[in-house]
């Protein structure tokens, strides 16, 4: 029972980070109907930026997010203005051009990191990296707790912006019906630039936080991109609660699988990949789709 509670708590802590990392993808997908394959590269770059700020100036990785996130917001807007905006629009879903372009951006970022920092494994060591607090007879890591708190704060912040500000409402409007938004006077190009900036800033926050938990190289981020795919497919791509739910489901499955089965931790990627395939085959609408289907069945009865 006690083990169960600790595993559940660790799942919850992981879910916060997973959600932060997935919202970046979801916001961009919602507004532009493209999948940001460069997401992993941006997380990696943010990890290095956080590391550099820590190495040079002794800046705490969590504090460095105050610099890293806005800087990546600007980087995202710049990427949009120089590259993304030229992509042909497709209402149906991500075009081949968008996938190739963003995959290319990822490769460029990776090689840039190799050129600047080399291929050695880096990690950030802070006074609390190894710390943990006792909880219900088990222990919870201090970095994990901090990551969870910051994740929740960033998600609450994003939600407030999306719900309370004109800009946020315009982002939701473009997501829900782009034509109607344009006909109401929303400059869709401007909103797309802002959304790409927000998505990039969230990739950066996830990257900064990941750098406090894991060692990294320029290849870093791939498995987390896979997890994020799994989460937004589970969550149904467009709803805020859906993505949170998807993050919870994946985190719980991963943690319980490694705690209660003999599946080694190194197989975690296999779990998210299997889940991704199962969801795509069995419930392409994700959890919201499944929910609607069950709902309809109940109503029909």
């Amino acid at each position: 029972m006690q083990k169960f509670v600790i595993v559940a708590l660790n799942s919850l802590l992981a879910a916060g980070l997973y959600a932060t990392m997935s919202y970046g993808l979801a916001v961009i997908y919602g507004v532009m109907r493209i999948i940001n394959l460069a997401h992993a590269g941006l997380m990696m770059l943010a990890a290095y930026a956080t590391w550099a700020l820590n190495d040079r100036f002794g800046l705490d990785p969590f504090l460095s997010m105050i610099i890293v996130a806005p800087a990546f917001f600007v980087l995202g807007m710049a990427l949009y203005a120089t590259l993304i905006r030229w992509l042909p629009r497709s209402a149906a879903g991500p075009s081949m051009q968008s996938l190739l372009l963003l995959f290319g951006v990822w490769l460029v970022l990776q090689n840039l990191a190799y050129a600047i920092w080399g291929g050695d494994t880096q990690s950030i060591l802070t006074p609390y990296t190894m710390e943990s607090v006792p909880f219900l007879g088990g222990r919870l890591g201090v970095p994990q707790i901090l990551v969870f708190v910051v994740s929740i704060l960033s998600l609450v912040g994003l939600n407030l912006v999306l719900r309370r500000t004109y800009l946020g409402k315009a982002i939701r409007a473009v997501t829900q019906n782009r034509d109607a938004a344009m006909l109401s006077g929303v400059n869709a190009g401007q909103i797309a630039a802002v959304a790409f900036g927000i998505g990039t800033a969230f990739a950066a926050m996830a990257g900064s936080m990941l750098s406090t938990l894991y060692a990294f190289t320029p290849d870093f981020g791939r498995s987390f991109l896979l997890k994020a795919f799994c989460i937004i497919v589970l969550g149904g791509m467009e709803s805020f609660t859906g993505v949170a739910l998807g993050a919870l489901v994946l985190a719980f499955i991963e943690n319980f699988a490694s705690a209660y089965t003999s599946i080694p931790v190194s197989y975690q990627d296999a779990i998210s990949f299997t889940l991704l395939v199962v969801v795509l085959v069995a419930a392409p609408g994700g959890l919201p789709g499944l929910w609607r289907m069950l709902d309809r069945r109940v109503v029909a009865r």
Partner: peptide, 21 residues
């Protein structure tokens, strides 16, 4: 627009207010 095209996950109030963008 044809077929209304409201923002379905926003309230009626939000739909109206966003009309004045």
């Amino acid at each position: 627009p044809e077929a209304r095209q409201l923002w379905p996950q926003m309230t009626v109030r939000e739909n109206l207010e966003l009309g004045a963008y």
